[in-house]
Computed example of a mutant assay.
Amino acid sequence: MPEGQRADARRNYERILAVAVDEVAAHGANASLEQIARVAGVGSATVRRHFPSRRALLEAVSHKRIEDLSDRARELAGTGESRATLLAWLNEVVEYSATARGLAAVLVPDGGEVEPAQVNGCAAALEDAASPLLQDAVRDGAVSSEATLADLLALIAGIAMATEHYPDPAAQAHRLFQLAFTGLAPQH
């Protein structure tokens, strides 16, 4: 939230965000902005003033989760076998993405006409924090040098979106991610 806002504007922002967290948890990335405004007791224009796009709202809702995942990546850096460490962190991203409705939507570009730095603030934060994990795995020959964190996050987001309506989305997302990460060849 921008510094220097009036106290009532800060209260509106906080109330809108609290309601949005609940609505996104219940309805996912397509939670109704009008319903959020109604429950928060503000007009739709007030919601749009604080959150000019759905992505801005979803990023604000996901901010704490992104911080936690970024902190976790920094904690894991250099702590063990590089492939296993990277996989452990990616599995945490899968878990968050599959269970925190709306998070997967902020991990992929929205295709809008905005500056690249604004397209994917959440993904950029995760990429910055986890790049040492991927670099270590690439250096050790445990992961292809062609793999990027953007690729891995897009894969996870796609899996999370594809499994969100399963009876156990997290279990299905983990299963599909493990399949993608290990490949289709049988392990010998």
Score class of each variant (00 low, 15 high):
residue 109 P to A: 00
residue 104 A to M: 07
residue 99 T to V: 05
residue 94 V to P: 00
residue 114 V to A: 13
residue 106 V to L: 08
residue 89 W to G: 01
residue 109 P to K: 01
residue 113 E to Y: 02
residue 110 D to F: 09
residue 88 A to I: 01
residue 101 R to I: 07
residue 121 G to S: 09
residue 99 T to H: 04
residue 92 E to K: 12
residue 115 E to N: 09
residue 93 V to G: 09
residue 121 G to W: 11
residue 86 L to C: 01
residue 116 P to S: 05
residue 95 E to V: 02
residue 118 Q to L: 14
residue 88 A to T: 13
residue 113 E to I: 04
residue 97 S to G: 15
residue 100 A to S: 13
residue 110 D to Y: 10
residue 99 T to C: 05
residue 120 N to D: 14
residue 103 L to S: 09
residue 90 L to F: 05
residue 91 N to A: 05
residue 95 E to P: 00
residue 95 E to Y: 03
residue 105 A to R: 11
residue 119 V to S: 11
residue 118 Q to D: 15
residue 91 N to D: 06
residue 91 N to L: 08
residue 96 Y to G: 08
residue 105 A to Y: 07
residue 116 P to W: 06
residue 104 A to D: 03
residue 117 A to Y: 08
residue 106 V to E: 02
residue 98 A to I: 13
residue 117 A to L: 14
residue 114 V to K: 10
residue 94 V to I: 03
residue 93 V to L: 09
residue 119 V to D: 07
residue 114 V to Y: 07
residue 96 Y to M: 08
residue 104 A to R: 10
residue 106 V to G: 09
residue 118 Q to Y: 07
residue 97 S to K: 04
residue 96 Y to N: 06
residue 107 L to W: 10
residue 93 V to R: 07
residue 118 Q to R: 14
residue 87 L to H: 13
residue 115 E to H: 15
residue 110 D to H: 13
residue 96 Y to P: 00
residue 98 A to F: 10
residue 90 L to P: 11
residue 92 E to P: 08
residue 116 P to Y: 04
residue 102 G to V: 09
residue 89 W to T: 01
residue 115 E to C: 04
residue 101 R to F: 14
residue 103 L to P: 05
residue 84 A to R: 15
residue 106 V to A: 10
residue 96 Y to S: 12
residue 97 S to I: 03
residue 98 A to T: 14
residue 85 T to W: 03
residue 98 A to S: 15
residue 86 L to R: 00
residue 90 L to E: 13
residue 91 N to T: 03
residue 114 V to G: 04
residue 96 Y to A: 15
residue 115 E to T: 07
residue 91 N to I: 00
residue 104 A to Q: 10
residue 115 E to P: 02
residue 105 A to W: 06
residue 116 P to I: 05
residue 103 L to T: 11
residue 103 L to H: 07
residue 95 E to H: 14
residue 109 P to T: 00
residue 93 V to H: 06
residue 116 P to T: 07
residue 105 A to E: 12
residue 94 V to E: 01
residue 89 W to K: 03
residue 107 L to V: 09
residue 91 N to E: 13
